[in-house]
Design a protein around this nucleic acid. Structure first.
Length: 445
RNA sequence: GGCGCGAUGGCGGAGUGGUGACGCAACGGAUUGCAAAUCCGUGUACACGAGUUCGAUUCUCGUUCGCGCCUCCA
């Protein structure tokens, strides 16, 4: 087994992965803000880094990897939604967290070890802000607690932005209570009708970045191995997490930063603000979990992946072939080295998929199944994959009866009748295939 | 304006300093009553220009085009 290499955003190059503690490898992936239905672009990090989780478990042992993925359940957009619907924020965050978890599960990703919520960590946040103020890295201003960017000499090292550049490139008005234009919010005041928590600086709510710093410290420790998320989080989110955690602890925060590229539609980033999105649910309903997962993994995680129905359909066909080959086959006990080696090179999933294709022959079907299972594929029975739920208005008995009638017609060389029956079934979404062993049926795509 | 990423066959998409994965589609054949599935076979792809080199798709520089971050965002 080759060594594991990871592209570290901070170093801007691939680096050999050396865990802090091989008995407890710790990874954190920024989760979602639960204020609405997640789109398929949101699903990309949770499939890509699910592969990382699986790979780390394979290399270090299932009990030696801790994977935390947070749920941001306090945010102005959640508050807005709650106001619009006339309900509390918990009603909103619970609803969409549940949907998100179900979506991700259907995409075949393993459940993380921990899924901490922001609102469960208010005491930790207050403690960290106190520390930052005591150490001179934060200040109070008009009910806000602000992080003082000038107090950190190497602020901006992850995104490679200098404070001056940030100020020069600022496209928003600078709030008057900021000492420096680049300072960011740790805590902001809440009005009477807004959700808030008591704090030494008045009733308010946390800024976006604080929760991750606090949850990582509490659940994973002061320094962790891997922190991952979408490229759009590099700045400001991850930059600010570094600032908070390192200034609070006086210690390095993260060893390896990993960032996935965007999912695009027609070459443009899919985002809620652009409105050009497909929800995960829509895509799952149309293409199913495994084909969607495979289509997300056909491109390397750092490259953009253009979402299209054609691609998802293509992956469905590939999976059809793999399912046919592995029908009734037990998976090998070991995951093929070719798959592990491909993934160990900075999660090269396209190469891993090619390695699976290379095993797609009757002789190596058991290895194919083991490798595919490892990556979260071929998890269903063939019965379920090819037939699933039959289309509405068609019963299995009716299908079997028509197959019998058709085979009788074929024996009588009444091919007009036999084709009529086959076409009739096809109209109902059922495909027939004649083989040496008899006629089988499956649901049409 | 600052910082950064990318450009590979009809499509998707890896990789490499030296006759160019893999998949899908297409085409030819085998098989089939016909299909489907399966099997066999076929394709002068590396944006453009210059440089380094015995040799570049792969390294360097430039050009063009596309995309992203600098504001909420996976």
């Amino acid at each position: 087994m080759n060594e594991l290499f990871i592209y570290n955003t901070e170093a801007r190059k691939k680096e050999r992965f050396i865990p802090i503690d091989p008995k407890n490898v710790r990874m954190y992936v920024c989760g979602v803000t639960v204020y609405g239905n997640a789109h398929i672009g949101n699903a990309r990090p949770y499939t890509a880094f699910d592969i990382l989780f699986r790979l780390l478990r394979h290399r270090y042992g299932e009990d030696h990897v801790t994977y935390a993925r947070n749920i941001t359940d306090i945010d102005d957009k959640i508050m807005q939604r709650a106001t619009d619907e006339g309900v509390g924020i918990k009603a909103i965050s619970r609803r969409y967290a549940k949907i998100f978890q179900a979506d991700i599960a259907e995409l075949g990703s393993l459940v993380p070890t921990l899924e901490p919520k922001a609102t469960d960590h208010l005491p930790e946040m207050i403690k960290m802000m106190r520390t930052l103020i005591e150490k001179g890295h934060a200040y109070e201003a008009e009910g806000h607690v602000m992080f003082d960017v000038t107090s950190m000499s190497n602020y901006g090292r992850l995104s490679r932005h200098s404070r001056d550049e940030l100020v020069a490139g600022a496209r928003v008005d600078v709030a008057p209570y900021k000492r420096d234009a680049a300072d960011f919010v740790l805590w902001k005041p809440s009005s009477k009708d807004q959700v808030g928590w008591g704090s030494p600086w008045g009733r308010g709510r946390p800024g976006w970045h604080l929760e991750c710093s606090c949850m990582i410290e509490k659940h994973l420790g002061v320094e962790i191995d891997i922190h991952a998320g979408g490229q759009d989080l590099i700045f400001p989110h991850h930059e600010n997490e570094i600032a908070q955690s390192e200034c609070a602890h006086g210690h390095n925060f993260v060893r390896y930063w990993m960032h996935n590229g965007y999912l695009t539609v027609d070459g443009v980033k899919m985002s809620k603000s652009l409105g050009n999105f497909h929800t995960i649910r829509e895509v799952l309903d149309q293409h199913g979990g495994e084909a969607t997962r495979l289509s997300l993994l056909t491109a390397h995680y750092r490259q953009p992946v253009d979402f299209s129905h054609d691609n998802a359909t293509e992956q469905k066909r590939r999976l059809d072939r793999w399912y046919r080959l592995t029908d009734g086959i037990e998976a090998s006990d070991t995951v093929p080295e070719t798959v592990i080696d491909a993934l160990s090179d900075d999660l090269n999933t396209p190469m891993a998929i090619a390695a699976l294709d290379a095993l797609a022959s009757p002789k190596t079907a058991a290895d194919l199944k083991a490798g595919a299972n490892f990556m979260g594929f071929l998890m269903q029975s063939n019965e379920s994959w090819f037939r699933g739920e039959v289309p509405e208005g068609v019963s299995t008995e009716a299908i079997e009866a028509m197959i019998q009638a058709r085979n009788q017609a074929r024996l009588n060389k009444d091919f007009a009748e036999s084709d009529r029956i086959r076409d009739s079934l096809l109209e109902q979404g059922i495909v027939l295939e004649d083989s040496a062993d008899g006629t089988i049926w499956r649901r049409a795509d």
